[in-house]
Each structure stands twice: as C-alpha cells, then as structure tokens.
Design a protein around this nucleic acid. Sequence first.
DNA 1: GATGAATGAGTGTTCATTCAT
DNA 2: GATGAATGAACACTCATTCAT
Lengths: 216, 216, 216, 216
Amino acid sequence: MNDKFFDLPRVKQDRMINGALEVFAKNGYKHASTDDMVKAVGVSKGLWFHYFGSKPGIYTFVYGYSVKYMLLELSTIVDENERDFLELTRQIELAKSRVGRNYPYMVLFLNEAVKETDENIIFTVEEEKKVLEDKLTDMLKNSEIKGIEDKNRREKVKRMVTYMVTGITREKTYEGVESDAIYREIRGYLDLIGQMSVSLGKAHDSEFENMLEGLM
Amino acid sequence: MNDKFFDLPRVKQDRMINGALEVFAKNGYKHASTDDMVKAVGVSKGLWFHYFGSKPGIYTFVYGYSVKYMLLELSTIVDENERDFLELTRQIELAKSRVGRNYPYMVLFLNEAVKETDENIIFTVEEEKKVLEDKLTDMLKNSEIKGIEDKNRREKVKRMVTYMVTGITREKTYEGVESDAIYREIRGYLDLIGQMSVSLGKAHDSEFENMLEGLM
Amino acid sequence: MNDKFFDLPRVKQDRMINGALEVFAKNGYKHASTDDMVKAVGVSKGLWFHYFGSKPGIYTFVYGYSVKYMLLELSTIVDENERDFLELTRQIELAKSRVGRNYPYMVLFLNEAVKETDENIIFTVEEEKKVLEDKLTDMLKNSEIKGIEDKNRREKVKRMVTYMVTGITREKTYEGVESDAIYREIRGYLDLIGQMSVSLGKAHDSEFENMLEGLM
Amino acid sequence: MNDKFFDLPRVKQDRMINGALEVFAKNGYKHASTDDMVKAVGVSKGLWFHYFGSKPGIYTFVYGYSVKYMLLELSTIVDENERDFLELTRQIELAKSRVGRNYPYMVLFLNEAVKETDENIIFTVEEEKKVLEDKLTDMLKNSEIKGIEDKNRREKVKRMVTYMVTGITREKTYEGVESDAIYREIRGYLDLIGQMSVSLGKAHDSEFENMLEGLM
DNA sequence: GATGAATGAGTGTTCATTCAT
DNA sequence: GATGAATGAACACTCATTCAT
C-alpha cells in the first residue's frame, strides 16, 4: 500500500510527511483531521487515502518512517562508546537537529506520540515505539556526569536535562525556530550544566574527604 | 456559574459528579460524550449546560472538586510526621478508599487526568493539578523503607508499589469492586512487601558488616 | 429508538416519513442519500440519526410503517369473501389510493422495495415483506375472472392487470398525480378488461359446445 | 467509441470483457468499482475510459456484447423445431456452456442483469434485454414435456427446472467450476426429471382411461 | 428550574472521472 | 496508445451546544 508512495517525487513525499507530522504533533491523533492535512499540504484528500488507506494508516506510516529516520541519524552521529551523559545528549540533540532540517515537526511528533492512547493506533505502533525507546535508553543508561558521582543527583540532573530539552524543543518548534538554532540553544544549556556539575564535583570531593577523615 | 450547582439537593449533585467522573475516567476528555453522562445520570442534557456552560466547564469543575475532596481526606487521615513509606502509602490508600465511598471513580479519574493533553482543559486545570501533585510528592519524597537503605533499591520498590497500587485500582474499579475492598487488597500487598524488605535489610546488614571488615 | 419518534407532532412525523418514502422510492436504497431527505423535508441531518440511528434504520422503519399502514387499509376496505379477481383488484387499488392520500409515495416505495438486494436492509425487512406478500397472494390466489375459465389465460390476464396497475402507478406517481385520480384511471382499465373477458367467455362456451358435439 | 476497442489484440479484448463481466456479475452495477476491474484485468484505469468513456459505457458495451454472443451460440446449437422442453433446455444449457468456455461469468452476468434498476443503465440496455428475453421465451413457450399434459403441472416443472438451472449456475460459477462441468451436472438433473415425467405420464394415462370409461 | 428536540459544521472515507506524461 | 496519480464532490454519521416549551 505504501510502496507506491515512494515512487512519488521526493519533494512531494516530504511535503506530505511534514504535513502529517505537523498536524498530528500539534493536535494529537484524535484531534488531527485529514482536512487540516489537505489544507496544510495542498494535496487532495483522495490522495491521502490513495496512499495510506485510512487515518490510522497515515499515522502508522509516518510513525514508522520517523523511527527509521531518527535511528539512522542517531547511528550516524552518536558515538556509541561515549560514556559522558552531557556529551551523549549533545550528540543526540545534534542528530535531532539534523532530522529537523528535513522534517521540522518529526521530533515534536515523536515526543507527543508517547502519550497517545487511541486504540486505532497503539497496537500498530507498539513495536516501533519500543525499538526507539530501547535505543535511547541503552545509549544513556550507563552514562556518567563528570563531578556527579551520586546516582540520585545524577538522575535528577538527567531528568532535569530531559525536561529542559523537551521543553525547549516544544516551545521553539511551535515558534517556528529552525532545528539548528534549537540545537545551539540547547547546547548553551548543556555547557552551563557541565560547568556547574564539575564545580559541584569538586565541592563534593572535599566534603567526601572530610567525611573520610571523620571516619578515620 | 457553579454556585447555583451547590443549591441542588446534595444527592443530585453527587449523582452528576459521579456520572461525569465515570465517563471522563473511562473514556478520556475528548472521547467522553455528554450523551453518555446524561444516560449514566438520568439528568437532562440541558441541565449540564445550565450549570457548567460547556464540556470543558464540566471537566474543570469535577477536576477542581476532586482535588479539593482528595486533599481533605488526605489531611484528615494521613499523619504528616510519618516517615515510613509503606505506612504512608497505606494511609494514602486509606484516604483514597474513603474518597471512593462517595465517589467510586474519582481516584481513577485523577489517575487518568495526568495523561490529558487537550487544549480545552489543560490550562484551566493546570494549577489544581500541581497542588495535588506537590502534596503527594511532599508527603512521600523523604520517606524511608525499613531495611532498604539503598536509594536505588528504594526507588525501585517505591515505583513497584506505585505500579501495583495504580494497577489494582484501575482493574478493580472497572470491575465495580468497592473502594474498601480495594483498600484491603492493596494493604495485603503492602504487608507482604514490608516483610520482604525487612528480611532484605538484615541480609544486607551482614553484607555491609563484611564490607566494613574488609576496609579495616 | 423509534419510540421517541411517535412523540413528535403527527404532522412532522408524516413529513419525515413522506420524505424518506419519496427519496427511497425514486432512488433505491443505495442511491438514496440522507442529504436528499434533509433537503426534501427541511429537517436537520442530525435529527434523522437521532430518531433512526442509521440509514438502514431509516429504511427499516419506513418499511415496517408502510406494511402496517397498508395492511390496515386493506383490511378496512377489501371484502375477504369476494372471489372476483377484477373486483378484488379494484378494492385493493382503492385501499392503495387511500394510503396515497396521506403518503403519496408509499405504494411506489413498496413496489420498488421488492427489487432491493442491499445487504444492509434485506434481512431486517425480510419478515415484514413476507407478511404483506402473503396477504396479497392469499387474497388473489383463488379468485376468478368471469368468462375466463382457462387457468392459463386467466393467469395471463392477471399478470397483465398487474403490469398495468404497476405501470400506471409508477408513471402517474412520478407525474405527481393524486392517488384518487390514479385510482379512477386504473378503474377505467379494469372495467374494460371486465367487458372483454365476459365476451371472450361467451365465444369460448360455443367453441366448447362444438367440441363436445364432436366427441359424441 | 467502441470501434477502437475491436482493434485491440483479441486476447486483451477478452481479458477486459471478462474482467468487467466478473466484477459486474458479482457486485451489481452500482457496487462494481472500476478499481476492481483494473485489479482483475491488469489494464490501466485510463484505458477503460479511453475505450468506453464512462462506467455506464462499460456496462452497456459488455451487455450488448453478451447478448450478441449468447444469441449466436443459441442459434448455432439450439434446434428451433425441437418441441420437447427438456431437450430444448439441454440445448440451451449446452449453448451457455459454450459461452462459458470463453466468458466464464457471462451467463451469471446476464442472470443478474435482470435485477438492475440503476437509471444510468436501464434505458441504454432495455432494447437488447428484450431481444434476448423474447428469444428465450419464444423458444420455450410452446414446448412440451413428455408425460405431462397438464399445463399447470408442466409450468411447475418448467419453473422448477429454471430454479434448478439458475441455482446451479450461480453456485458453481462462484466456485470457479468450468462451464462444461456445470453443463454435465445440469444434464444429470434434466435426465432424472425426464424419467420421472415419463413415469408420471403413464400413471396419468391409466387414470385417464378410467375416466373415459366412466364417461361411456 | 428542567427538558430533550433540534441544529449543522465537521469527520473519515469512497470512487467515477480527468489529464499530464 | 497507455498509464495511474490526482481530483473533489458526495457519502453516512457524530456531537457540543442552543432554545422553545
């Protein structure tokens, strides 16, 4: 069914994918209307159904496409041996910014997709969702943050970073900011956090020394 | 707008609140239909709009009402000085079961509300949502579990408990089980986990002693 | 579902029934569109579905209603002891003209319904269809035509009468002719056929006498 | 318009005709979709419209073609002087089986076409329909069945044969059985009925003799 | 106050037909 | 000639909201 789609001129493919990503990302599956896609892309309603068969069909297709595209950029850019959380995050965000060059709403779409519960799509999307989640979890799960030995703190920082990244991406994407600029903004935060962490680590070291001294 | 609502006979108020809670809890905001509420409650459609003005109005009202009611029961039942996580959880679940006596779907409704993203409600509900979340976070954030000193393990256990509690609540509420019975079922699990934790702690202590011995 | 419908003012009920009958009769089930009914009757689309739930629901309702109404008029007007085919037909057509006073397209609708094969309706309509068919078959099956003893000829005449009646009804109903006028037109044909039959009988009798003479 | 069609390679002509026949026969005019024909035949959609102009155009063409083809086979095979109903039927069915060798769905298509009421086709098809109907009626109307003098009984047997023939044709064609095999199956039934009729006739004769005796 | 009949814009989906290649 | 991508009007159906009673 979707095979024919790939015979279209690349430019048109991407216009349609971007239209679907934007409408789904902004409205969620249920609220997203095919009429909005028609308006956004300028391609007739009939054609959407010609290529994707149904609304769940459209969603499933762009979801699968997004996961594949995202994994490709991640594997190209992210160094799998890197163990530093902030550096890994920087690389991941760089990959996302590359994705954003062609598909500005793809990252937002994937972020929002996590919350979907509509029965028409959750099952068809389940598997691909897990693949991407596992990939990102694997990359980050054993990563370290210089100066933050304490797991709890580190997790908090990680979560903080995650919130920061997600928030900025959401906000800036809605504002129409280009993905490269979003990346640069995020990188600024990452650098700051890196500096704060290192100094925290040093303070902590001396505290730890004091503690050890007390022990002896 | 809602003031008039409180002039209704208490019984009718509660019937309407319960109807809204049930339909919203089971279907989510967008899928919940005013027709379903009408059928569930046996009160005319016109009246819903007379009192609440709109569908977002209904949702916002029952959300605020639920938060207030929940906080009231929590403050009545939960001992703020208690530091034991499992005991705190027991008290919180007891409070929820009290809520459930009058409003069987209120807890489920609040659990499901976390996932809502519909623009018609997220902003009007935002503040009250934070109040309840903060309250629960405050209660539990520094709590301990006897025998589990390791934060990591403790977090895992806490998360496990959360999953357990949420899962049982969801399942049993759908089955129509009364809230008191749900509480008793949950309490059984809590007791079991408590016993397992204590024994784990003892094993851990001896391991720790061995470690200290090695240090010296 | 249809119960509420009968609480409507009688005039509105009949406007809706007539609208549905006309659109179905003229276009057949599949071709008939709810939009056409909306336009024909001036009642909103939502209301049709409020009362009948679905397009098959509308069809099934008006079919059942038509059968009941038709049987009522038949039982009121047709003399069950009458054995003369042409007189019986006259009475049946009189009954149909009475039906047509309130529901001009009902007879045409029932005539056309015989040909329906759409799977969405044939099963729900099956039983009522049989009731009406059996009633008419019972009335006519043993009837005689004065002057035509020969079964074969009689059947041909009967079939001819049926074709004539159906054809005139179809043609005149489409032209907007009132049912009473249609009845008078049909009655003219019936009288003519009656006269022709009697004279045919007489010729036949003498032929038969000749035959008997030859035998002896 | 259709002239160009006959310049196509014969094989392609027949593939298109068979595709149209099958899709129309199985779904009826309205339900038959040009997409289905395209899929069934493997010839582009554009071409159908190039040769036939419209959907009614396709239907009208294959209808006319079928009638001509059928009449040709009937005139080749059926002996016009034959007066025995069962033998005539056998010959007709033989002709149909010959038709089926090249166009497996043609007979089914013609059988189903009787029920069509769609305004887009009934008028353009009317004349050819009558030609075929009259031909078959003429062939059979005065035919006799050995042993069955009684017109009433004969008609019943004839109708029974018609039901049998139609039913078997429908069933077996859907099952993909070849037309020759269908013919052989039908022939078996015809032989059986022939034998039953003859014996019925003999019993009847003696009864008749008794009656004559009583007369004298 | 209380009702529920009534609305109509909006939804996903289909399909005969056109037309650039 | 031959293709199939592209169209868009038409379809059955939904639902928050209004308003006469």
